[in-house]
């Protein structure tokens, strides 16, 4: 069976590495991107099944990118990641499937990814 593809977008290299290692161990194919400005092109080229998106990035905020993704890809699952729980106050975050506060423990994130793949509308 074809592996599910996850696109991780984060400007911090150590976070990208952590996500890649942990999620590849779970059996997913993970592609990473440090520059959110290249995200739309990469989504078009790679056609990921899920996007994990950091919120605070210098070139473009994850919330802005989420709006662009939603505009073009109606149902592409997106999980927002942030070190700050205050981002939940931004209503635009509600257009993501889930939002997770960054932590070294990725269990919550892994559970949500599984949940999304089980979701059937």
């Amino acid at each position: 069976m074809k592996k599910k593809k996850i696109l991780s977008i984060d400007d911090e290299e150590n976070i990208r590495l952590l996500l890649s290692c942990e999620l590849e161990d779970e059996g997913y194919e993970v592609i990473s991107l440090g520059n959110p400005l290249q995200a739309m092109k990469m989504i078009e080229d790679e056609q990921p099944d899920i996007i994990i998106l950091d919120i605070k990035m210098p070139q473009l905020s994850g919330i802005e990118l989420l709006k662009m993704i939603r505009d073009k890809y109606y149902d592409l699952p997106v999980i927002l990641l942030s070190a700050y729980s205050t981002f939940k106050r931004d209503v635009a975050a509600m257009a993501s499937d889930y939002y997770v506060v960054k932590s070294a423990d990725l269990n919550e994130l892994k559970k949500l990814i599984k949940k999304i793949f089980k979701t059937h509308l």
């Binding site: 939603r70 149902d75 931004d90 209503v91 635009a92 949940k115 979701t119 059937h120």
Partner: peptide, 15 residues
Amino acid sequence: QKVVGSRPTAILGFQ
């Protein structure tokens, strides 16, 4: 009865 979970809906407009 076939639906499992839920999906978000885009939010447009200036917030």
